[in-house]
Amino acid sequence: MDNSTSPAVEFRGVSKRYGATRALSRAGFTVARGETVALLGHNGAGKSTAVDLMLGLRRPDEGDIKILGMSPGQAVASGRVGALLQSGGLPDGATVRDVVRLACGLYGGRRPVSETLSLAGLADLAGRQAGELSGGQSQRLKFAVAIAGRPELLFLDEPTVALDVEARRGFWSVVRGAADQGASVVFATHYLDEADMFADRVVVLSRGSVVADGGPSTVKALAGGRTVRCVLDAPDPRRLLALPGVQDVQIHGNEVILRTGDADQTVGALYTSIGGVRDLQVTGAGLEEALIALSSGKTA
C-alpha cells in the first residue's frame, strides 16, 4: 500500500478488556491526512486506551488498527509518529536541552534542536532541569519531544489536563504554531471547548464505544437539544418531565432548567399547562450538555 495516501488512522472494530473491565468495545473511527480530530469523553471513556493502542503500547483483543498504513509498532519505529502521553514523563538529572537533543537524535535529526526548542516555547528554559519545570512548561517539553521528528501524525493525550487556564491557552497556541502543514493531529480531551476550538472533527467516546462522530456542530445536533430556563412559583418535577420534548429536569429553588429536544413544544406547553412562567430563556445546548446527553445514552 502507498503509505503517503493511506489514512492517518484506521481504527476498526477495536475491543480491549482489562480483566473484567471493558475499556473499548468495537470502537471504530478513521482520521484522514491533515485532519485534526478530538477524542472526547469523560475519564474512563476509553480515550487513553485508544491512544495506547494506536501507539502500539498495548494490543487490541479484537479489531484492526492501521497507522499511516502500517501497524502501530512499525509506525512508531519509523519515526513518522509523535506522541505526548498522559502517563508519559520526564527524566531527572537532565536539562531541557538534553531531553530535546536526545529526542531530535532519536528521530534522526529531522528537526534541529534549536528549532524544536523555540517551537515549543522553551528557548529561554533550555538550561533548566527537566524535573524542575512547572506543569505548563513540562507539557511543552513533552510536546517538544513529540514534534522533534516532524511527525506526519501527532498524538496528544489529555495534553492540558491539570493546567490552569493561562497555561492551557499557551499550550494550544504552541500546538497551532508547531503542527506542520498537512500533519494529522489526534488529541484526547475531556475539555469541550478544546474539542470545539481545535478539532475539525470530534469522536465522542462513552464507556468504550463511539457514540458520536462528526464536526463539533454535528455533535451538538446529535445531542439535539436546547436548554429552557425559567422561574416558577411551585415547580413540580414530575409534571415538568411530562412536558413534550423534555429529557431532563433540574430544579434549584424556584429556578427550573429543562433540557429538551423540541424547545417550541416545551415552551408552548409550559405556558398552557403550567403557567406562571417568569424569566424564560431558551439557549442552544453547549457541547458540555451534548456530551452529558450522549454519554448517558438518553438521546434518541
Binding site: 501507539l55 503500547l57 512508531v76 519505529a77 519509523s78 519515526g79 509518529v81 509523535g82 506522541a83 502521553l85 502517563s87 508519559g88 514523563g89 520526564l90 527524566p91 531527572d92 538529572g93 529526542a103 532519536l106 528521530y107 534522526g108 513533552k142 519531544v145 521528528g149 498524538f155
Partner: peptide, 21 residues
C-alpha cells in the same frame, strides 16, 4: 540506577513511543 525513577515518572513510556526500540 535511575531506571526505577524513569519507570515511575513515565519517562520509559515516553521513550517507547519514539523510534528507540
Amino acid at each position: 540506577g535511575g531506571v526505577a525513577d524513569d519507570r515511575a515518572q513515565g519517562w520509559l513510556r515516553q521513550l517507547k513511543v519514539t523510534p528507540l526500540r
